[in-house]
């Protein structure tokens, strides 16, 4: 249902609107749309420093198919998303439920949860890198303190250790965001529904599974896809903590692409970047559908 239009649509209004959106459209076209198209285009070339640039059809993409390092970083990225996101969602839900309680220190708790969100990713990455330090990191100190292991753990020295070290650091940084989103969802559930359920003699676990979870479903879906899009392109955390190691086992797709750009191989780097783009784009389309954005404007 369209609301009654206050101003009649006419040509002069259209011109005014055009002027208002012009700066926004210009900056987006110049610095987002054209670079993305440029990346697609460059992916079709042999574009390496010290060699003449030449059109190479799909040879960069053919090379991707047989590049085992590419497939390893593809598998790593997918596994990383599949591990980090459920943890973030579960923990974010716990935090959101706590923050939604009527507590006297609620504002202080909310402020605390915002800290990991506000800390720059690179700062968080450096801090976690030190936490995982073999000789004097906090992680090995706590493990010794609790008597969990006799010898210190070389967290970043094995592929599995490095994987879960990165997962924990990522979950720390991103859970607050999930919690904030889910909290907004929780606040839209009317208190009367819970009152009624209480009268009916349900316990809080039943209320969570029968009321909270079903009513939060749309918000959960949005948070899930939003976080997936963000995690698919992960780079900065990994760049600092492991730089893709040990032995390239934690190289994400974005980091893999960056390494080619950094060496001056723009053709192959662009082909990798296109793959990241396509995955993120497919997720975005589902996000726009799930989020029901069109409705917000009516």
């Amino acid at each position: 249902m369209r609301k009654p239009v206050t101003f009649t649509r006419n040509r002069k209004e259209g011109r005014t609107a055009f002027l208002f959106v012009l700066p926004l459209v210009t900056v987006i076209v110049l610095f987002i749309v054209i670079p993305v198209l440029g990346t697609f285009w460059t992916g079709l070339f042999r574009d390496v420093t010290y060699l003449p640039t030449k059109f190479a059809y799909f040879s960069n993409y053919r090379r991707l198919l047989t590049d085992s390092d590419f497939w390893r970083s593809f598998r790593f990225t997918m596994l990383f998303v599949a591990t980090a996101i459920p943890l973030e969602m579960a923990l974010g839900m716990v935090f959101a439920l706590i923050l939604n309680e009527r507590l006297r220190m609620r504002n202080a708790l909310r402020a605390t949860v915002l800290i990991p969100w506000a800390v720059p990713t690179i700062v968080a990455a450096r801090t976690w890198e030190l936490i995982y330090n073999y000789g004097y990191g906090l992680a090995n100190y706590l493990i010794a303190l609790l008597g969990l292991s006799d010898a210190p753990v070389n967290w970043l020295g094995s592929p599995v250790g490095a994987f879960f070290a990165l997962i924990l650091a990522d979950v720390w940084k991103t859970t607050p965001f999930v919690a904030i989103i889910l909290l907004a969802g929780l606040q839209t559930i009317p208190e009367e529904i819970y009152e009624q359920a209480r009268v009916d003699g349900t316990n809080f676990l039943q209320r969570f599974f029968k009321i909270t979870l079903p009513m939060l479903k749309p918000v959960i879906a949005v948070a899930l896809i939003f976080r997936s899009i963000d995690t698919i392109r992960i780079l900065d955390l990994i760049y600092v903590v492991t730089d893709g190691g040990p032995g390239g086992s934690t190289t994400s797709l974005s980091l893999y692409g960056y390494k080619y750009f950094n060496e001056g191989d723009f053709g192959y780097g662009s082909a990798i970047a296109v793959v990241v783009f396509v995955i993120a784009f497919l997720l975005s389309v589902s996000y726009l559908k799930v989020g029901g954005f069109g409705r917000a404007m009516e």
Partner: peptide, 8 residues
């Protein structure tokens, strides 16, 4: 993704 812009 930023990686899809940065090369260009």
């Amino acid at each position: 993704p930023q990686i899809s812009l940065i090369g260009y």
